[in-house]
Simulated scan of single mutants.
Amino acid sequence: MTESSTVLILGARGRFGLAATRAFAQAGWRVFAQLRPGASGPVIPGVVWLAAQPGDTARLAAAAHGAAVVVQGLSPVYTHQAWRRDLPGLTQAAIDVARELGALLMLPASVYNFGATMPPLLREDTVQAASTFKGGLRIASEAQVRMATQDGRMKAVVIRGGDFFGSGTGSWLDEVMVKAIQGGKFTYPGPLNVPTAWAWLPDMARSFVAVAGQRHRLPAFETLHFAGYSLTGQDWADVLADIAWERGWLPAGGKLRTRSLSWPMMRALSLVMPKIAALCEMRYQWHTPHALVNTRMAALTGAEPHTPFPEALRAALAELGLLTSRKEVAAKGATVTAQAFERSVS
């Protein structure tokens, strides 16, 4: 194994971190995957799990000696207080280990930087005019990384994507949109006719692998866009209606019931739930048409990984356990029990 095919992934048990861990391992890279002490990771061929705090630079650099790439999968919990308190330190932890290794630091990013006045097409050089607390912190975090590249000890690349879905729980998809899908209901946070940017994490993670493979062509600091999907609420409803019909979640001759998220109720909940308050701040995104333009990414790596949306959505729902019937769950449970019994008597 050569150093050119070794990567350290920070926050590898998070949603993006785990997607990146799988993508790099599937591409044949040797992966050192950091998680916090006491946590555990799934068995993935080619992955070595490292139990260490994000700021333990010496330990991480020694364990991942020879890694040419560091992926920043660390992220605070979704509240203003946590972001203000933790984001600068988590960013610095990633910078410190990348500098120690002399590696390329890869940072996933969002459209928060552009704010409520963002134009319909977001290019790499589009003016960033954040209108929210988190957008301002994202801009500061990326500037923090850029500054760290100026003395030549490391390179860095920011890869910006739309709203994440897939690779586990904790997204708009599972927490709001398909919460009642098995009852034939779909909830959408905005108007059904406004296109917004989305990123299926397995595809975005594969784009990280592609960029890492071209790191010798990158300048000291670069920003790239992962286009992903530009989807309206109606696009989601159409595919989900097909799935709901196939799975028997709709009454005979019935249609998928589409409803709007109650933002007044969200604002009321935000008074006692900090996470909801942070989500309310981003409401403008659902009313502002936007799509990411991936000109620089395409010039560097060619066509980005792009799974057809219906296929990606089905995969995301399967990960959430929504495409498994009670009968299938019972059958799987019986199989697992039988296998355990066989092991116990063998």
Rank of each mutant, 00 (worst) to 15 (best):
A330C: 01
A180L: 08
P76L: 06
A98V: 11
E246L: 09
S171L: 14
M118Q: 11
V127R: 12
G136H: 14
L192P: 06
E175T: 07
L104E: 05
P76F: 01
G213V: 00
G17R: 12
T295A: 05
V47R: 01
L18I: 01
D203W: 01
V272P: 04
F208L: 05
A291C: 08
L107S: 10
E222A: 14
E311N: 09
G135S: 02
A103V: 02
G333I: 02
T337I: 04
A197D: 05
I159L: 14
S260V: 06
S110G: 12
F186V: 13
L121Y: 11
P195G: 07
V209E: 10
A252P: 13
Q72V: 02
V239F: 07
P305K: 02
G73E: 04
R247I: 08
M273L: 15
A277D: 13
T132E: 12
M204P: 04
A33G: 09
V145E: 07
T117D: 15
M147D: 15
D242F: 00
K327D: 10
Q72C: 05
H287A: 14
F24V: 09
L240P: 08
V336Q: 15
R257Q: 14
R215V: 04
A140F: 00
P108V: 08
P305H: 01
G302K: 04
I9V: 14
R267F: 02
R160N: 09
